[in-house]
Design a protein around this nucleic acid. Structure first.
Length: 422
DNA sequence: TCTGGGGTCCTAGGACCC
DNA sequence: TCTGGGGTCCTAGGACCC
């Protein structure tokens, strides 16, 4: 049986989301900034054409932005997340099996659709999302996920630009691989691209034609899978149920530098709560935690400091009071006065299913009581919002908070932000 | 002065055991 | 000059993705 995959990818997703609710932005250059309004992380086509780069620091791009009246937005994940789930909802009408790959990309299993007019079907997907949500998408279809990604990529090229490409014919696949650089193949990053170039492997077609032994030696078994996928052999399956995460991490840069341990503790406490909430949502408990704090990577020599501490728990836990206590203790151990801290955060590790936790006889924590408290807090936050209930160590000033000076309204998730029609 | 955040998988090498 | 051999577990580091 031959496999067939579709990938649907929202073009310039964050920028396009901003545009949906403000049509006056149509045709104008837009950029969306990273968490701390630090870097450019999304650009409309017009912004790309101006030469604004992905990951470029805002201060570097300021002149170009002002000269061209580029519209600038802080990232609004509440809005993008909600728009993303609406896209996925729409896609489930086109295939019974959808894998949500990232906030703006989904794979579709089209295994049973070989007999239909695939081009027409792909166009219908594109047009439906466009009509229902106002978001431009590109659709690639091919026998493997890696080839589908290539089809998707080419479908967005200016000379094609209609956002649909089906690659099922061998000659079309060869032509597509010949015009794709090896470094643009899904799974081949900058390091591997450079390494491959040293061996004369420049295009996806070259890569398709290396021996298995070469692929395994230089790119590990992961790269070998990529090579096989380029040959049309499906090695990467559709994952319709996301596997439980093995680590959960929450960290943020501060809006301004912090020197005192208490200020860092306020931020860390808030991160612990976010992280523990994610943990409980996937019904896991953590057996260990790593806490870290650091100055800017770009600080002058002698002013750079970064440290972490890992704590192992006797009994895996998802309780906030317990996690906060451990986190703050670890923070005080790694804190060194005299540095300008820019970032703190934590990782929860050794995750196990919540219902499989072995209780220890020597346990001093009343786990039943903690579980009830967490359930109550989760319920309150769900109904009234994240900041409803706070711990004392979170403080009230939130001096560490991100800059988010250009935040757009949460059009789809907050009643008070609902768009108004005149 | 200003520089994102959150993940995965694989491999090599050391520690330890019999 | 020779200096056992093989297995397991853990960790750090390197690669990748969005």
């Amino acid at each position: 049986m031959t496999s067939l995959f579709g990938i649907v990818d929202c073009n310039n997703f964050y920028a396009s989301c901003e545009r949906v609710f403000d049509p006056s932005l149509e045709g104008k250059p837009i950029v969306v900034l990273s968490n701390n309004d630090g870097c450019i992380i999304a650009r409309s086509n017009e912004a790309k054409a101006l030469g604004l780069q992905m990951g470029q620091p805002l201060f570097e791009a300021r002149e170009l932005i002002e000269q061209n009246q580029v519209q600038v937005f802080s990232s609004n994940y509440e809005l993008y997340g909600d728009m993303s789930s609406r896209v996925v909802e729409t896609l489930t009408r086109f295939s019974p099996n959808v894998e949500v790959y990232s906030i703006d990309e989904s794979f579709l299993d089209l295994g049973d659709f070989y007999r239909t007019d695939l081009n027409a079907y792909a166009r219908e997907i594109r047009d439906t999302v466009g009509q229902w949500l106002g978001l431009p998408v590109a659709v690639g279809v091919a026998p493997t996920k890696t080839l589908a990604k290539i089809a998707n990529r080419i479908s967005k090229k200016p000379e094609k630009a209609d956002g649909v490409l089906v690659l099922t014919d061998g000659r079309h696949i060869e032509a597509a691989l010949r015009r794709t650089e090896a470094g643009d193949v899904w799974g081949i990053g900058r390091r591997y691209a450079k390494k491959l170039a040293g061996y004369g492997v420049h295009t996806a077609w070259d890569l398709r034609n290396v021996t298995d032994a070469f692929a395994k030696k230089h790119l590990t078994v992961v790269g070998l899978r990529t090579v096989r996928e380029l040959r049309g052999e499906a090695c990467i399956e559709l994952e319709t149920v996301p596997p439980a995460k093995q680590n959960i991490c929450t960290s943020r840069s501060f809006g301004t530098a912090i020197t005192e341990v208490d200020g860092i503790a306020e931020a860390l406490t808030t991160h612990v709560i976010r992280c523990a909430t994610k943990l409980r949502r996937q019904k896991s408990k953590a057996g260990a935690m790593t806490v870290f704090a650091m100055t800017s990577r770009f600080a002058q020599e002698g002013e750079v400091y970064s440290n972490c501490r890992t704590v192992t728990f006797d009994t895996p836990t998802d309780s906030e009071p317990e996690l906060i206590r451990h986190a703050l203790k670890a923070l005080r151990e790694i804190y060194r006065p005299g540095f300008r801290y820019r970032k703190t955060g934590l990782l929860l590790l050794d995750l196990v299913p919540a219902d499989s936790v072995q209780l220890s006889l020597l346990d001093t924590v009343d786990r039943e009581k903690h579980a009830q408290l967490m359930q109550t807090l989760d319920g309150l936050r769900e109904r009234f919002g994240h900041g409803t209930v706070k711990y004392a160590t979170q403080g009230t000033e939130e001096k560490w908070k991100n800059k988010q000076e250009k935040l757009s309204p949460c059009y789809t998730t907050r009643l008070e932000d609902l768009i108004r029609a005149k």
